[in-house]
Structures are given as C-alpha cells and as structure tokens.
Design a protein around this nucleic acid. Structure first.
Lengths: 138, 138
DNA sequence: CTGTGTGCAAACACTTTGCAGGTGT
DNA sequence: ACACCTGCAAAGTGTTTGCACACAG
C-alpha cells in the first residue's frame, strides 16, 4: 500500500517527512529506533520532527512502541489487529537478537494466557525474548 | 537476614551506603527505582554513589533490573533462584500497577514455555503485565 | 485562511565518567 | 598498605518544550 494512502486512512496530513518515515517502516522487517529512522530518511529532517512523527504515529495507532531490554525503544508497524487512536492491542511476542541487535515482532506467536494471583487485574502485557535470530545463529 | 551478613556473603565490602540501600530493598515488597532508593536512604549519599551501588548489586547477583514499560528501570532483590556475578536466572512475571505505580515480582508465576519459530534461539526472556494490583482494584 | 507540521535553540531527565581523597579489611 | 568506595563536577545520551515560520487542506 502507498504511504500516502495509509496516512490518509489514519487521518494524518501528508508531509514529506511522514511519508519517508512511514516508508522506512514499510520497507524494514525489523523494528526501528529513533536513530534508525533518522538514518534511513533524508538528512534534512530535524531530530525533533522525527520524534514528533513517531509520537504521532503511535498515538494514531499506526506503529507501536517496543521497549528494549536496555531501556531504549524501538517502533514497528501495527499489523492485523485493529489499533486506533490511543488504543493498541498487541499480544504478540517481540524478539531481540543479541548478535545483530534486530528486534522483530513475532506476529504468529501469541502470548499465552497467564493465571494471575487473586486480586490482580491485567490490562496490558508485553513479552520480550532475547537470543539469536535465524540469521545469526552460528 | 542482616544486611551486613548478606553483603559479606556476596563478597561485598560493608559500607553505610550499601547497608542502607540493601535495607531499603529488604523492607519493601515493591521494586524500587533509583529515585525511590534515593528517597529512602539518608540524604548524605550522592546520586552517583547510589547508581554505582545499584550497578554493583546487579553485577553481583543481589538484585535484578526490571525494565519499566515506559523506559525507566526498577530493581528488586533476587530470591530463590541462584543469581551470581553477572549470571541472572529469572523466569518470573513482573507486574506493574497502573494506579499506584508499584512494580512487583510475582515470584510464584513462571513464564510459560513458548515455542519459537524455526531458527530462533532463546537466551533470555522477560514478561511484564500491567494492570491493577489487589490494593488498587476498586 | 486556519490549523497543523517543521526547524532551531534550549531545557530536561537520566545515567556515566574522571579524578582526588577517604575508608574497609 | 592496598584496593576499593565515595563525593563532586562535568560530560553524555535520549527526549521534550517554546516559539516563529512554512505548508497542507
């Protein structure tokens, strides 16, 4: 799908920056950090603009934020599931390769149900597995 | 167990700061952020010293780091499992209450086995559930 | 035309590093 | 005595905010 079309369908104005950022996500299978995005789009965009673009995309439900084990964050497109403004639904597993550093959404692996102790109410869940990806296992 | 004794058994020198930091963890059921610790120990300790103390404790396997959903970090004592120098083994679930903000280790809940796609090798895993804790569910 | 996005500068929060001096064993 | 802890100052990193101007619809 065209970036232009996608933006429109999420009620976002079209701008060069947004188009390039979105294209970066659409042409990468791995999740991207702010720095990754910055490296993939034209230099003319300000660091701040990219931060704001990512924030907007998350708020609109276009991408989701993946907290990295070491405190940083990556972002990846929302698929399948219906994510909308401030309303994300993700229950897939995230995998981070300790060798190449790539973080990917394992869309096909769902987080199994977990029985919480009495009195705990679950609202959100996130599961990160670290290890070696197929590309990097020796 | 006495803080003093614990320090010794982890081959750590006894200092006032370490004792107070350790006591803070031993007298709290919830995980503590750097700022939480800073607020619980005597003012005379430098922020930097507390950072270093936490780092040392993590390296020695006394406490483990819990990445918060929003990028921050909390720390909690390692229990049961044998954690030692740079060798942590945790497979319990972490729970963060969206109401009171407390993060706790659900020591009794273990992360279920997950079948990864072909070629992925698991080395580490972490599961964070957010919601309401028993104290805060209305 | 109007609301929103962008660039720039600056502020902010969090964490780390270097160094000199003090302390535990 | 020696290794290692601590405090202070400073630098580093990642992210946010304020404001004036530019641009999309």
């Amino acid at each position: 799908m065209e970036a232009r079309t996608v933006l429109k369908s999420f009620s976002l104005r079209h701008t060069d920056c947004r188009e390039e950022v979105l294209n970066a996500f659409m042409s990468n299978s791995a999740a991207l950090s702010h720095g990754d995005v910055e490296g993939q789009v034209d230099d003319r965009y300000d660091r701040v603009t990219i931060y704001r673009t990512l924030k907007t995309f998350v708020e609109k439900g276009l991408i989701h934020k993946i907290p990295d084990a070491d405190g940083g964050s990556k972002y990846a497109l929302c698929k399948e599931e219906e994510c909308s403004t401030d309303n994300h639904h993700h229950d897939h597993v995230h995998f981070k390769c300790n060798e190449c550093g790539d973080t990917t959404c394992l869309e096909t692996i769902h987080i199994p149900g977990i029985e919480l102790p009495q009195g705990y109410q679950r609202e959100d869940i996130s599961l990160l597995i670290e290890g070696r990806c197929p590309k990097c296992k020796d």
